[in-house]
């Protein structure tokens, strides 16, 4: 019979459909794995309320564990997901993939605050600018590097 640890390792094979370089474990959206009487309950949490990837992820988990153990996937909203749960491994993978990982940001209620310095994931320059607070998916903002001129995605801070 599989152990809890083995299930956690298996879950590393399920990737986020919108950022395939990250696994759902890297993202911190798997909150709990419970094993009882050869049945496994996995609790996941969405990054954003309207995240369209949740159903695909749920299916991914069910398919992964099919034939290994019977599984129920539950979704929880509290505590709410934060980018603090992104693993160090996940942050490195994002950078290599060309997406800047979340930086510590000032309180969003400060209007026209100096934008957070987000180093370019490609040339590493800190001379970058925000193009738009909202990017290609709910979890990303759109930036551009003033040195290498490349546009890039920034995985924005959510706290």
């Amino acid at each position: 019979m599989v152990t809890k640890n083995e299930i956690w390792q298996l879950l590393e094979q399920v990737s986020d459909p919108e950022i395939p370089v990250l696994t759902i474990v890297d993202l911190g959206i798997v909150r709990e794995v419970e094993l009882e009487d050869n049945h496994c309950t996995i609790t996941i949490t969405p990054t954003y309320s309207g995240c369209p990837a949740m159903q695909v992820i749920e299916k991914g988990i069910e398919e992964l564990l099919e034939g290994i153990i019977s599984v129920t996937v539950k979704s929880t909203l509290s505590p709410a997901w934060t980018t603090d749960w992104l693993s160090e491994n996940g942050r490195n993978k994002l950078r290599e993939y060309g997406i800047a990982p979340p930086e510590h940001e000032v309180d969003k209620s400060v209007l026209f605050a100096a934008p957070t310095v987000v180093p370019c994931p490609l040339c590493k320059s800190s001379n970058t600018k925000m193009v738009s607070q909202f990017g290609s998916t709910a979890c990303k903002a759109h930036y551009q590097c003033n040195e290498c001129m490349e546009p890039f995605d920034y995985f924005k801070c959510l706290k």
């Binding site: 954003y48 909203l77 509290s78 505590p79 969003k108 026209f112 607070q133 959510l158």
Partner: peptide, 21 residues
């Protein structure tokens, strides 16, 4: 209600910053 509010609040802060600016 508290859990959905906690989740939604984080998103609303981004919306508010955008519309205020």
């Amino acid at each position: 209600l508290a859990a959905i509010a906690e989740k939604s609040l984080k998103e609303t802060k981004y919306h508010l910053k955008h519309s205020s600016e």
